[in-house]
Every structure is written in structure tokens, then in C-alpha cells.
Amino acid sequence: MSCYVIKPKGSSQRLPYLPILMSLPSGRQVSLDHYREQDEQQVFSIFKKIVEDGQSYPQEKVESLQDFRDYYLSHDVFVARDATETEEVLGAFYVKPNFPGRSSHICNAGFIVKESERGQGLGKRMAQYFLYIARDLGYKASFFNLVYVNNEASLRTWRGLGFKEIGVVPNAGYIKGLGYTDAVQFYYDFSTLTGSVEQI
């Protein structure tokens, strides 16, 4: 048996303040809520396209819907939906332990935004809410292993939210069109986080 297995959770913890409305800089209203089974195909499509683009996730491809489920849906997932009756999925993020066992209090997260919605501030808004959501799920800190240096939007987001840069992994990923690229590692201590999600 592997000593580095992060077991899937049986059921996700429900956060009482969700769904919650987020306002984007354009004034657009987006609902952030727990993942629902009917979101699966839309979230899968967004993730698959991002992986195929080859700019931000280490996976080279997503072979099947089951591969997606095993990776992206193994723990807690939150979805940003258009706050109209269409409820179109615009983005999502998962929260799960970055390490097993004695270090499982440190979480990792994976953010995705639909291609047509990028550049509108949605990723940044989800990141702001992620801090409180992860803390309220019981995690003590967050650690991002691989933020490729070509992913400028992500770098700006984590730096802007006060994450500490704790390392650089040289030639961490082979990025389409760029070749081998370094990655920054970010850490955030949730004990420094004040207030509540409703105050964002």
C-alpha cells in the first residue's frame, strides 16, 4: 500500500453561507455554491479545454470523464454559476489536502475559468472566497506546488492576496509553445485570515 495516498472523502461538508452572490468588476452577478451532479459535464468541459491548452495544469491530457472525476471531484468542489435562470457554469475550484495523513491540514486548490469568461475578474473573486472556504473546511494553510511562471494572472492573484513565495522549482513543467518552464510555490497561513466570508 502506498504511503502517499490521499483518500477521497465520503461526503462534502456543507457550508451554511453558500450559495453566495459575488459581484464582478463589470457588475455581473455570479453565484458561488457547492458543486452539484448536474454541473459535471460543464465543469469537465472547462477543465478538459484548460488541460489541452497546456499552459497551467501539469496533466498532458484527460483521457476520460472518470479520470476527471478521480482528480477533480475527489474532495470538495465549488462552482461559480451565472446568477440568472440559465445557471451557466463559469468557473470552479476544488479544495483538497495537498499531503496525506499528518500533513493533511495543508490544502491545495485547483481553479478553472471558462475560456469566454477569462479576464473578467472571476478567477480573482473565486480566489478571495477560497481563503475563507478552505479555512472554514478546517484546513490550517494552503500550499500551491506548481504555479508556472507563464501564468501571470495566477501569479498576480496569489501575490495580491498575500501568499508567501516559498520556492521556485526550475524547469517544473513542459509548457506548450514555451518548453521547460519554472514554477513558483506559494503558501498561505489561514491563522492570519481575519473576518468572515460575508465581509468580502
Rank of each mutant, 00 (worst) to 15 (best):
70 D>L: 08
71 Y>E: 10
71 Y>W: 11
71 Y>R: 09
71 Y>D: 10
71 Y>G: 09
72 Y>D: 00
72 Y>T: 07
74 S>F: 05
76 D>W: 12
77 V>H: 03
78 F>W: 09
78 F>E: 03
78 F>P: 02
78 F>H: 04
78 F>R: 02
80 A>Y: 12
80 A>C: 12
80 A>S: 07
82 D>N: 11
82 D>E: 11
84 T>N: 14
85 E>N: 11
85 E>W: 10
85 E>F: 08
85 E>K: 11
86 T>D: 15
86 T>H: 15
86 T>Y: 12
87 E>T: 14
87 E>D: 11
89 V>C: 06
90 L>D: 05
91 G>A: 09
92 A>M: 14
92 A>S: 15
93 F>M: 02
94 Y>V: 11
94 Y>M: 11
95 V>Y: 06
95 V>I: 11
96 K>N: 13
96 K>P: 00
97 P>I: 09
99 F>Y: 14
99 F>K: 12
102 R>S: 14
102 R>P: 09
102 R>A: 09
102 R>H: 12
103 S>P: 06
104 S>T: 05
107 C>M: 08
109 A>Y: 06
109 A>P: 01
110 G>V: 09
111 F>Y: 11
114 K>W: 01
115 E>H: 11
118 R>E: 06
118 R>H: 11
120 Q>Y: 08
121 G>K: 10
122 L>I: 06
122 L>V: 06
123 G>E: 04
123 G>A: 15
123 G>D: 08
124 K>H: 13
130 F>W: 14
131 L>R: 07
131 L>F: 00
134 A>W: 00
135 R>A: 12
136 D>S: 05
137 L>A: 03
137 L>G: 04
137 L>M: 01
141 A>D: 07
142 S>D: 07
143 F>C: 12
144 F>Q: 02
144 F>G: 02
146 L>I: 14
148 Y>F: 14
149 V>A: 05
149 V>T: 13
150 N>C: 11
150 N>H: 08
151 N>L: 02
152 E>K: 15
152 E>H: 14
155 L>V: 09
156 R>P: 07
156 R>C: 13
157 T>K: 03
162 G>E: 03
162 G>I: 07
162 G>Q: 04
165 E>P: 02
165 E>Q: 13
168 V>G: 05
169 V>L: 10
170 P>R: 14
170 P>K: 13
170 P>I: 05
170 P>Y: 02
171 N>G: 07
172 A>L: 10
174 Y>V: 15
174 Y>P: 08
175 I>C: 06
176 K>W: 15
176 K>A: 12
176 K>Q: 12
179 G>L: 00
183 A>L: 10
184 V>R: 05
185 Q>A: 15
186 F>E: 00
186 F>K: 04
186 F>H: 04
187 Y>Q: 09
187 Y>W: 11
187 Y>R: 08
188 Y>S: 02
189 D>P: 14
190 F>N: 10
191 S>H: 15
191 S>N: 13
191 S>P: 11
192 T>P: 01
